[in-house]
C-alpha cells in the first residue's frame, strides 16, 4: 500500500515507471545518445568515402577545395558555434525556470540556424554559377576548367573533381537537412516553452533537442577543415 501511495505523490511531469526526475532525464539522454551513435555511423560512411577518394585523388581534391570560399565557411562555423552557446544557455534558463530567457535563447538559436542555411544557400548558388555541380544540373554541365586555370600547378582531373563535389554536396546537403530538422524541433520547443511547459522539474525536451543541435554542430566542426581547408598553403 505504501508503494502505490508514494507513486501518486509525484507531479504530472514524472512518468510512473521512473523512480525520480533525475532517472527520467538520464534515461532520455541515454536514448538520445544511442540515436546519435547511429548518426555517427551514418555520417561516418560518407566521411570514409571522402577519406578513401581524398587519399587517391589528392591533387584534384586539393584544387577543388581551393575553389570554395573560406570566409563564408568560417563565418558559418562561427554562426553554428554561437547557436550552440544559445542552446546551452536555453537549457540553463529552463533549469532555473526563467521562461522569458528560455524563449529568447530558443528564438536566437532558430535565427542562427536559419542564418547558417541562408549562407549555405549563397555558397551552393556560387557553385551553381561556376558549373561546379556534378552532372548536368539545370542545364549547367559540370566543368572545372576554371579551377585548372586558377591553379595551373595542380593537375585537375575533371572526373576526380566531380567525385569531390559529389561528396561536398552530399555531406553539406545531408548536414543542411539535419539543420532543417533542427529548425523544426526548435520551433516546437519555442511553442512548448511559450505555453510554459518547461521548468526546473521538466526540461528534458530542451536538453534532448539541444543534444541533437550540438551533434549537428560537431559534424560541421569536422566538415569545415575537411572540405574547405584541404590544401591552402601557397603554391
Amino acid at each position: 500500500m505504501t508503494d502505490s501511495h508514494a507513486a501518486t505523490q509525484h507531479g504530472p511531469e514524472l512518468l510512473h515507471h521512473f523512480a525520480d526526475e533525475e532517472q527520467q532525464r538520464n534515461s532520455a539522454s541515454l536514448g538520445m545518445w544511442l540515436f546519435l551513435g547511429t548518426e555517427i555511423m551514418f555520417f561516418g560512411g560518407m566521411f570514409l568515402a571522402y577519406l578513401v577518394y581524398r587519399l587517391n585523388y589528392f591533387e584534384s581534391f586539393a584544387a577543388s577545395s581551393r575553389s570554395i570560399a573560406v570566409p563564408l565557411g568560417a563565418i558559418n562555423t562561427a554562426v553554428l558555434l554561437c547557436s550552440s552557446l544559445t542552446v546551452v544557455l536555453a537549457v540553463r534558463a529552463a533549469q532555473m525556470g526563467k521562461r522569458k530567457l528560455l524563449i529568447w535563447m530558443l528564438i536566437l538559436t532558430l535565427i542562427f540556424g536559419l542564418a547558417f542555411l541562408a549562407i549555405k544557400g549563397v555558397e551552393w548558388h556560387e557553385k551553381y554559377e561556376e558549373h561546379h555541380i556534378p552532372g548536368n544540373f539545370m542545364g549547367r554541365a559540370f566543368d572545372v576548367s576554371d579551377i585548372q586555370r586558377d591553379f595551373p600547378k595542380l593537375h585537375v582531373d575533371p572526373q576526380h573533381a566531380q567525385i569531390f563535389f559529389s561528396l561536398y554536396f552530399a555531406l553539406t546537403g545531408i548536414h543542411a537537412l539535419h539543420m532543417i530538422v533542427g529548425v523544426g524541433i526548435f520551433l516546437w520547443l519555442i511553442y512548448k516553452a511559450w505555453k510554459g511547459d518547461f521548468g526546473p522539474k521538466y526540461y528534458t525536451p530542451v536538453e534532448i533537442g539541444g543534444l541533437y543541435w550540438h551533434f549537428v554542430d560537431v559534424v560541421w566542426i569536422y566538415l569545415f577543415p575537411l572540405l574547405y581547408l584541404i590544401d591552402r598553403k601557397p603554391l
Binding site: S84, V88, H214, I221
Partner: peptide, 9 residues
C-alpha cells in the same frame, strides 16, 4: 568537438 561534447552536451 571535445569542448562541445564535454561542456555543451
Amino acid at each position: 568537438a571535445l569542448l562541445v561534447i564535454l561542456f555543451f552536451m
